[in-house]
Amino acid sequence: MSADGQPALIELRQVTKTYGQGQAAFQALAGIDLSIERGEFVAVMGPSGSGKSTAMNIIGCLDTLSSGSYRFCGVPVETLTRDQCARLRRSYLGFVFQGFNLLRRTSALENVELPLLYRGESAATRARLAREALADVGLSGWEQHTSAELSGGQQQRVAIARAIVTRPAVLLADEPTGNLDTQRSREIMELIKRLNTERGITVVMVTHEPDMAAMARRIVHFIDGRIAADASASDAAALARARA
């Protein structure tokens, strides 16, 4: 519960995730407690294989958890049907992947329109909102280009436009700059930062770069499927300095 009595936006309690069965079983998440409020900007860090993506996928309702509970706005997600999860995704969540995951041979505009189409928006509304979203990520004039004709940075911006075109409550980004050079990474980071400050979109973002993480207000550290540290960015920076 947050201070004003409303349930937290995202609330994970003792969440575990086990891949495989029997001998081959592997516990990727070993009991996570995490609660995120509206409007937060959370950076998720940790060595590779520590369960960051697993946690993100569970938060994004793209994957199921093995035990524990996940409440989104107080709703127990693990009790939802597949269709209810899909509706939750299309209404409240925007996901940005490391590998972009755009539809191939499809124009930027059509890619961005897609979530609106599944929400049943009219063609005119779709086109207007998709153009606006592409403008928001600085891709005006690139509407008709397919992913093959766009650079990595541009593709990731199309993916972000697709994630925010439905005006989601939460933007989940799993290493959104992982495939980009420093310059492009910075642009994407600034874009995400602006979405958080100007639109009030809650952002949860996985990153390896400390200076990217420093733009967040809160940093969560994963190690071996557990949360090793969870602190405000300034504390985290102090912590990092102290360690150095």
Partner: peptide, 19 residues
């Protein structure tokens, strides 16, 4: 493979299974 990924993308951005 391509089609499976396409299905994944569509589901991830909120398409219902039956859609």
């Amino acid at each position: 493979t391509e089609r499976t990924r396409e299905v994944g993308i569509r589901l991830a951005i909120g398409a219902l299974e039956r859609e």
